[in-house]
Measured scan of single mutants.
Amino acid sequence: TYYTVKSGDTANKIAAQYGVSVANLRSWNGISGDLIFVGQKLIVKKG
């Protein structure tokens, strides 16, 4: 599943929404920190 980042989103918020850990969200998308951008497409695997 892909999720498009919206204004006000955070890695924590997206992870919680899908029931996954922030560490997994980072791993699936090659993100090292919490910096995400509006319009960015993230791979999300439901927990």
Rank of each mutant, 00 (worst) to 15 (best):
T1D: 12
T1F: 14
T1I: 14
T1S: 11
Y2P: 04
Y2M: 09
Y3Q: 02
Y3P: 02
Y3N: 02
Y3L: 04
Y3C: 08
Y3G: 02
T4M: 08
T4R: 07
T4F: 10
T4V: 14
V5T: 05
V5Y: 02
V5F: 04
V5S: 03
V5M: 02
V5H: 02
K6P: 02
K6N: 07
S7T: 13
S7P: 15
G8E: 06
G8H: 06
G8T: 06
G8A: 05
G8V: 03
D9K: 00
D9R: 00
T10W: 03
T10D: 08
T10G: 02
T10M: 03
A11Q: 11
A11P: 15
N12Y: 14
N12R: 13
N12W: 13
N12L: 14
K13R: 09
K13P: 00
K13E: 10
K13V: 08
K13W: 12
K13S: 15
K13D: 11
I14P: 00
I14A: 00
I14L: 05
I14E: 00
I14D: 00
I14Y: 00
I14Q: 00
I14M: 01
A15Y: 03
A15L: 03
A15E: 03
A15T: 03
A15W: 02
A15N: 01
A15F: 02
A15P: 00
A16M: 11
A16F: 10
A16E: 13
A16N: 11
A16D: 11
A16Y: 09
Q17E: 13
Q17W: 12
Q17I: 13
Q17F: 12
Q17N: 09
Q17D: 11
Y18A: 07
Y18M: 10
Y18I: 07
Y18F: 15
G19P: 01
G19V: 04
G19W: 05
G19N: 10
G19L: 06
G19T: 05
V20P: 01
V20R: 00
S21I: 05
S21H: 06
S21R: 04
S21D: 10
S21L: 07
V22F: 04
V22I: 12
V22T: 08
V22H: 04
A23Y: 06
A23R: 08
A23E: 15
N24P: 00
N24A: 11
N24R: 08
N24Y: 07
N24C: 15
L25A: 00
L25N: 00
L25M: 04
L25H: 00
L25K: 00
L25F: 04
L25E: 01
R26D: 04
R26H: 09
S27E: 15
S27D: 15
S27H: 12
S27F: 12
W28V: 03
W28M: 07
W28C: 04
W28H: 02
W28K: 01
N29T: 01
N29G: 02
N29M: 02
N29Q: 02
N29W: 03
N29I: 02
N29F: 03
G30P: 06
G30D: 12
G30L: 07
G30N: 15
G30W: 06
I31W: 07
I31L: 15
I31N: 05
I31R: 02
S32M: 13
G33P: 07
G33K: 07
G33D: 12
G33N: 11
G33T: 09
G33Y: 06
D34M: 08
D34N: 10
D34W: 07
D34I: 07
D34V: 07
L35G: 11
L35Y: 12
L35D: 15
L35E: 15
L35V: 12
L35C: 14
I36V: 10
I36N: 02
I36D: 02
I36A: 03
I36K: 02
I36F: 09
I36H: 02
F37H: 10
F37N: 09
F37T: 11
F37D: 07
F37K: 10
F37V: 11
F37I: 11
V38L: 08
V38H: 06
V38P: 13
V38G: 04
V38Q: 07
V38W: 04
G39W: 04
G39D: 06
G39Y: 02
G39T: 03
G39F: 04
Q40P: 02
K41E: 10
K41W: 06
K41N: 09
K41Q: 12
K41G: 05
K41A: 08
K41R: 13
L42R: 00
L42M: 06
L42P: 01
L42A: 01
I43P: 01
I43Q: 08
I43T: 06
I43S: 04
I43K: 07
I43L: 15
I43V: 10
V44F: 05
V44I: 13
V44A: 02
V44C: 02
K45I: 11
K45R: 13
K45M: 12
K45C: 12
K45F: 14
K46Y: 13
K46G: 13
K46L: 15
K46H: 12
K46V: 14
K46E: 12
G47Q: 13
G47Y: 11
G47H: 12
G47C: 13
